[in-house]
């Protein structure tokens, strides 16, 4: 990852009438980074991506694409962006080749380059055999691939994908994720999803959005350190007294859990060894020992539910699609 900033959005707001879909959102994307936007339905992900792609003007705030202001010079800024909306923008009566060639020309790919670009993007998205087929006759998964191909045809610096793996089968999902990872090496990718494992599989950084606000923004590696302490889940056939566990080096807390399990909070990784040793020496009969990880899912549920609790009962905001 380099320090070159490809996208920066500062304090962006978007209102639909009275309803605030995106509130005070800031975002940066660097070259070589895959940013995942995670959020429940109606959180404002799509609205954000539509603003970043220049399809929707923010009510307030600035968006810079590769150093160009998107609102002042939309035409120039858009040349650097490839965008796949929620519904792929396809013409069902065109053939795949014809459609992609049209997209290339709309994005001002030089005529001499079009054939090569077409070939490259078709190879990448697994569309080599589908070139002559009419888009309307393709399956949903293939249509989605054409949609992705359309976003890549002009090899943009920034690729914005709104739920790219929707409607794909597991094998296709793996292929597309690999493609996104690959793109993330040389370009910058922003993708939205509500599938947690997807973020863990492909993203370097995750921004969780809830009810239009950013509630979490960090790298995936920084995730474990920031949230919660590290714990071990253990179970014994002959559990010792809790005080006895506290005497082991490194143990900072012991909580009984359901089913006779114990959660041991610690700082050092050596604690596991100490527990095993003590169990053997003193005949506790250890039969389960598992490290506890803070998963993205935990954080997600934590954040989203905390929001709901503080705001009281909140009806699911209407999905904003105009």
């Amino acid at each position: 990852m380099s320090d070159e900033v490809l996208v920066s959005a500062e304090r962006v707001f978007r209102f639909y009438g009275q309803y605030c879909a995106v509130e005070d959102l800031s975002l940066t994307l660097r070259r070589g980074e895959v940013l995942g936007m995670l959020g429940p339905n109606g959180a404002g992900k799509s609205s954000t991506l539509r603003m970043l792609s220049g399809n929707l003007a923010p009510t307030a705030g600035r968006i810079n694409i590769n150093g160009i202001d998107l609102l002042d010079h939309p035409k120039l800024a858009k040349t650097h962006v490839g965008y796949l909306p929620e519904r792929p923008p396809l013409y069902p009566d065109m053939s795949v080749d014809e459609y992609l060639r049209y997209c290339a020309r709309l994005h001002r790919v030089p005529r001499a380059r079009i054939a090569a670009a077409l070939n490259e993007v078709k190879t990448r998205c697994g569309l080599i055999d589908a070139g002559r087929r009419v888009i309307g006759n393709l399956s949903k998964g293939y249509q989605q691939r054409v949609g992705i191909a359309q976003a890549l045809i002009h090899s943009p610096l920034i690729v914005i994908l709104d739920e790219p793996t929707v409607a794909l089968d597991p094998i296709q999902i793996r292929e597309i994720r690999a493609l996104i990872r690959e793109l993330g090496r040389s370009h910058g990718v922003i993708l939205s999803t509500h599938i947690l494992p997807e973020v863990q599989a492909v993203c370097d950084r995750v921004q969780i959005i809830h009810a239009g606000r950013t509630v979490f923004n960090d790298t995936l590696t920084g995730l474990g350190e920031r949230h919660g302490s590290i714990g071990l889940i253990v179970a014994f056939r002959a559990p010792p007294a809790i005080a006895e566990l506290y005497q082991l080096p490194g143990v900072e807390g012991v909580e009984p859990l359901a089913g006779g399990r114990l959660r041991i909070v610690h700082r050092e990784a050596k604690v596991a060894e100490a527990i095993v040793k003590a169990s053997v020496d003193r005949g506790w009969g250890l039969y389960e020992l598992a490290p506890e990880r803070t998963t993205l899912e935990q954080i997600f549920m934590d954040l989203v539910h905390r929001e709901f609790d503080t705001d009281g009962v909140k009806t699911n905001p209407m999905r904003a699609s105009a």
């Binding site: 792609s53 220049g54 399809n55 858009k78 965008y83 909306p85 929620e86 923008p89 396809l90 997209c103």
Partner: peptide, 9 residues
Amino acid sequence: QGSLTLLTS
């Protein structure tokens, strides 16, 4: 069809 987005983006 949602294809207007192709032109607007």
